[in-house]
Design a protein around this nucleic acid. Structure first.
Lengths: 149, 149
DNA sequence: TAATTTGTTTCACCTTAGTGAAATAACAGG
DNA sequence: CCTGTTATTTCACTAAGGTGAAACAAATTA
């Protein structure tokens, strides 16, 4: 799956991006708001605005505004950090969890079903593969962002 | 890989989106321009502005402007369609192919390498799985866009 | 060949996303 | 406690991304 794999990967990438956007529209947030939301959601222990701007490359001001909108939508809340009272920990609200789950549920169910067609070894391989791809994406994104080619 | 698979999927999705954005920045185009570029790139035989607005949900005016920018960057060109001379076929330029390949090459190579760790059956399963996921994404995106839940 | 429709672009405009700089408030070190 | 620093927000502003309506030009139909 070499050259062919490349095409598959590109297609997957585009489809993921478009799905991501569709979810955003459904949640009533913009793409950057959704990305931010995703980032927050993946930190169960909360994440600070500063970390968010570092992670996204956006200015602090931009992050503040996005958080404001997410707070207004009741997807996220600010909790003053106990150790540093200048700072906040941003975390998702129950409302977000309840709202976001069903929107992605259709896809989850569909993939679930599809997975029935694979045996245990295959599923294990697929799991390993995805983990590897995530790592690769992380490293390569980093590389593209920072130093030249 | 059920609940766990969900988390993996979310992580994969976010990483893909962020990688996509990193590539866009590298190519010097905006996210929507990049999405459009991707869409064009996947149609070797070219695609019309009308089809592009249908595919993205953007207005014709928006598509025209994005194409203008992509043309200015020499990533894409308009070829008058032979059968309908009002219309164009948009296709990527050699310059795009030369520019875009190396930016994604790092990831491709890395995944290539990773694939060495899988045998033929596993790779085949992974390929089938990806194809299935793409289909699922397509259907679910469609569903989210159009009719309610 | 006139009338209508279709594909795309141009125009004038609005909204949203993002910025840098100043303001606020809490921290860390002497 | 001052002093300087750090985390975040507020403010005033610019630029991007988008829209609908009008304008064109080629295609289709009658």
């Amino acid at each position: 799956m070499s050259e062919d794999g490349n095409r598959l990967g590109a297609e997957l990438s585009l489809r993921v991006v478009m799905f991501h956007e569709a979810i955003a529209r459904r949640l009533g947030v913009s793409n950057s708001e959704h990305k931010m939301l995703d980032l927050v959601a993946r930190h169960a222990d909360g994440i600070t605005p500063g970390e968010l701007s570092a992670a996204t490359g956006l200015s602090n001001a931009a992050v503040t505004k996005i958080i404001d909108k997410l707070v207004a939508a009741d997807y996220v809340r600010r909790e003053r950090s106990s150790r540093d009272r200048r700072s906040f920990r941003i975390r998702t609200t129950p409302h977000f969890q309840q709202t976001s789950r069903p929107t992605a549920a259709g896809l989850a169910r569909r993939i679930e079903e599809m997975n029935q067609g694979f045996d245990q070894e295959e599923l294990a391989a697929i799991g390993r593969w995805i983990t590897g791809v995530i790592e690769a994406l992380k490293v390569e994104t980093e590389r593209l962002e920072s130093r030249g080619r």
